[in-house]
Design a protein around this nucleic acid. Structure first.
Lengths: 133, 133
DNA sequence: CAATTGAGCGTAATGTTATTACGTATTCAT
DNA sequence: ATGAATACGTAATAACATTACGCTCAATTG
C-alpha cells in the first residue's frame, strides 16, 4: 500500500478532491465540494491541507492562495525544490524541478549564511495551448 | 528629478511608508500608518500599490501577502527577475538577482512554449544574523 | 492498569486580505 | 470644448485564514 493509507478520512477526502480537480483549488472551494461528505468549517480543510503539504502530497501556490495535488506518483519530500508554471488563462499548472536553479539558490543561501527553510518558485503566464488560441 | 516626482500624493505616501519601514508591510498596516494623512479605505492603498508595483518601485511578497519597497536606487523594470530571501525571525528581506537562475527559467519556458508573464522566487528561512542568535 | 501524551476532530467566532460597485474629479490630447 | 484616461473617495462585500475551546481515540509508559 502507498503511504496514502495512513491518511485519515478528512485528509483523504481533501487529497482526492485535489487529485480529481483540473487545476488548483482554494481551501473554500474544497470545502464546498466536501459539504456532502460532512465538511462544515474551513478549519477541517486547512488542517487536512497542512498535513498533506507536510507529507509532500500537496503544494500550496502562494501567488494564487490555492492548492494542488502533487503531480505524478513521485511524492516529493518536503524539501525538494519544485517550480510551478501557472497558466493565467486555463488555470493549468505545470510542475518541474531544475537542479541548476536549485543549486544556484542553495549557493546564494550558503554565501549569505541564510538558512533556507522553504522556497517558492512560481511563473505566471500563458501555457503552450493557450498561447496558440 | 527622479521618476518619483511623477507619483500622485497617495502613491508617494504609500511609497514613502514602505521605504521608511524596516521590512515588508501588509496593505492594512500601510493603511493604519496613513490614517493621519487622510487614508480611510483599503482601496486607497491597493490602488497606489498597483501603480507602484507596475512601476517597479515596490514588490509584492506572495508568500507573505505583504509589500516591500524595491531595494537600492536601481529601479527594476517590471520584468526583471528578482529573488527574495525572507527571514522568518526578524522579518528582514534580502533582494537578489541571479542571471543563471533567470536563464534556466527562461529556458524552461522556451522549451515548453510557456509565455512567462511574472515570476516569483521567495526563500523563507533564517538570515545570517538570526542564525547566530 | 491508569495516567499521560499526541494527533485528529467539530464548532463557533473572529481576524486578515482583497475586490466590486458607484460616482466624482482631474488631466491632457484632439 | 470634448472625450479618453487616470486617479480619487466611500461603502459594502467577498475571499482567505486563524484562534479558541472542548472532545475522542490510540499509543506509550510508569
Amino acid at each position: 500500500m502507498t503511504e496514502a493509507s495512513a491518511l485519515t478520512r478528512n485528509q483523504s477526502l481533501v487529497h482526492n478532491t485535489l487529485r480529481a480537480a483540473e487545476g488548483p483549488l482554494s481551501a473554500y472551494t474544497i470545502l464546498d465540494r466536501l459539504r456532502d461528505d460532512g465538511f462544515r468549517a474551513p478549519l477541517q480543510v486547512y488542517r487536512a491541507l497542512d498535513k498533506l503539504t507536510s507529507l509532500g502530497l500537496v503544494h500550496r501556490l502562494e501567488s494564487l492562495n490555492a492548492f494542488v495535488a502533487c503531480a505524478g506518483e513521485h511524492r516529493h519530500g518536503e524539501n525538494e525544490l519544485i517550480a510551478f508554471a501557472i497558466c493565467e488563462r486555463c488555470g493549468q499548472v505545470e510542475e518541474f524541478a531544475d537542479a541548476i536553479v536549485c543549486e544556484r539558490l542553495e549557493s546564494w543561501a550558503g554565501d549569505n549564511a541564510f538558512d533556507a527553510d522553504k522556497t517558492t518558485i512560481e511563473i505566471r503566464g500563458k501555457c503552450a495551448v493557450c498561447n496558440m488560441a
